[in-house]
Design a protein around this nucleic acid. Structure first.
Lengths: 208, 208
DNA sequence: ATGAAACATGAATCAGTATTCATGTTTGTC
DNA sequence: GACAAACATGAATACTGATTCATGTTTCAT
């Protein structure tokens, strides 16, 4: 992720209390994973520290050994989601030469990831209100991974010319909307059909 | 908005205490508009009734003359946003015969609306967590207004054939992503440029 | 084996805030 | 101009829930 320096590049958080033993490591993970489930299911505000720690099977106070505040655990989940999604997609498109095919398979990988992690998906959405900085970081990192591929593909004639910024945002918007269909609106349309239809739109547009 | 009956068609709310005098009407409007500003700026949870009423210039208790709960005023804002957006877009595309042009002008109208009402935009996003039913209602009404136009245009050969559901979702996703660029990411790109680039993608795709 | 650091506990603190209510004030009608 | 309904007030209520802390328990390097 190499992106021009900006005021946003101040580190988002410094995990202030890294566990130092295997036990601590395990407890921290348990809390983080409980937080993912509880916040994903009930939303940030209805998810109390009590809910999270009881889901994790530890006492309330234990939470504060590993996280400074409730917001901090949330931020960390958003960051984790970002890393996971980008990794998943880049993994899935690694060996694809053709940009159009990469686009299609990237979309498929994204939708499959979303279906497998509905909680994380909702958490990213909520970040716009709970932790706007993490939200922007998430989408900007995503866009920054997108743009260069579009620029290169246009240069080498694999796709037509066009503003890479708007394209990146629009393509991310499509992916997001279809992901939301799966997770929020619970569409029964299978992923493969969504991908085919969307791909046709992305490749050819809707002109007759 | 004629749409097949569904379990979602149970009325979302019955405004329980319509004011009966001009004074009451004015107070209710003042509270609603203060709520829009305050919730839009601070988010649902950080916006207290006290903040809202003081912004509106009335006492706390007055709030409960017009709204049963804090959630109710929020729901009403989401509904209002929905009505306004749909009205704005249908107004802007009313007299356009050609579907592709309608698509372009609809997008432009949407982006201009979003730029003029950034608060309402954020409120709709937050509805996913505060009032999921209103959120679904918002997007389904939107999609239901979209689909028929796509179906007709495909039938009459103004656009190519293709699944109208996925197309509707994808096009809404593009609009939303660009709206977010304006309001959340504060892109400087002028609306006209966004519209041109996105229109090119929508009409022709990215195939060389 | 043992002492210090790390980890864990859960009851108490502390602040915020949605909602209610008893008491005025204004409006419109007769 | 008086009466009832509508509207307005703001202090009091009631509750939730994040964070702290004094007190144990476990781990592990020596």
């Amino acid at each position: 992720m190499n992106r021009p320096a900006s005021t946003l590049d101040v580190p988002l958080k410094t995990p202030f209390n890294q566990p130092k033993t295997a036990r601590g490591e395990a407890t921290r993970k348990a809390i983080l994973s409980a937080a993912e489930r509880v916040i994903g299911a009930r939303g940030y505000n209805d998810a109390s520290i009590g809910h999270i720690t009881s889901e994790a099977g530890v006492a309330q106070g234990t939470f504060y050994i590993y996280f400074k505040t409730k917001e901090e655990v949330f931020s960390e989940l958003v960051l984790e989601m970002g890393r996971l999604v980008r990794h998943t997609i880049s993994e899935a498109t690694q060996d694809i030469e053709d940009r159009l095919s990469a686009e299609k398979e990237g979309l498929r990988a994204f939708l499959e990831f979303v279906q497998a992690h509905p909680d994380l998906y909702r958490i990213v959405q909520e970040a716009l209100f709970v932790d706007p900085r993490a939200y922007r970081e998430y989408y900007e990192a995503f866009a920054d991974g997108y743009r260069p591929g579009l620029v290169d593909a246009a240069a080498s004639g694999q796709i037509s010319a066009g503003d890479p910024d708007t394209r990146a945002w629009a393509l991310m918007g499509i992916a997001r909307a279809l992901g939301e269909q799966l997770v929020v609106f619970e569409t029964k349309t299978p992923i493969s059909e969504l991908v085919e239809s969307a791909y046709d739109l992305i490749a050819n547009g809707i002109k007759p």
